[in-house]
Design a binder for these strands. Sequence first.
DNA 1: ACCCAGGGTAACT
DNA 2: AGTTACCATGGG
Length: 269
Amino acid sequence: MDFTITNSNFDIKQTFLCGQCFRWQEREDGRFHGIAHGRYISLSQGDGCVTLHDISEEDIPLWEDYFDISTDYAEMISRLSADKTLAAACKSSGGIRLLKQEPFEALISFIISQNNNIPRISGIIGRLCESFGTEINGGYSFPTAEQLNGITPDDLAPLRAGFRARYICDAVNKVNSGEVDFSEIAVLPLDEAREKLKLIVGVGDKVADCVLLFGFARRNAFPKDVWVKRLMAEFYPDGLPECTLGIEGIAQQYLFDYVRNNGGLNNSK
DNA sequence: ACCCAGGGTAACT
DNA sequence: AGTTACCATGGG
């Protein structure tokens, strides 16, 4: 069956291409398709709505959760628009929804993202899925920690992940051993959850915050990459405005997308 | 040839 | 506690 979500703050192109995820692909007809939670899906954009195609009825709650449908983005945008820069960011990038990605996928993806660019990140992740994931509808699921158990950097050589290969292996080891426990991280306060993730070699503050924001739906996590550092220096030298309190991560994603697409930053670094 | 990319680590002051 | 070279790889 097809299932249509009526929501004015859901733009699939913005949502899938804003840098929060690396595995959704756009087809010639404008539909996006991909695999999450072991299920294939394709989506099309309508005017003020999004249609999920050919899904089973029992999976509707799963997709509603993945696309964060229960969260009121219009209300958050209204709040953030109290700040002038954020108002502009919301206006141009307000169709982004923060996907509730699987923690392990977010962890590995953002380890790979470090000192890297988005096209190459997507390439490495694609090769990881083809090599170790499960085939579904001609695509591949993101491999589980179990599927990657015992992996070595040599095994990952075909991915061409560079120095990040051993970081991936350390993450797999610590997840499988239980040293890094997702169910524990899910309920820890933000600072403690971040420190747990940083036990993994190759995970620092920025990667940990991305995992918490995109893999654990922690909207108060605020990843500071090179773009965010630049925009903070230019627009918020004294820190984030009060209207972002509690939803710093949402603000971050709107601002990140805004400055990447619209420039707006001076080049003073 | 040089620079940068959704950074982190180790080795320095 | 705050800097800095280095880390593989690929594109501009």
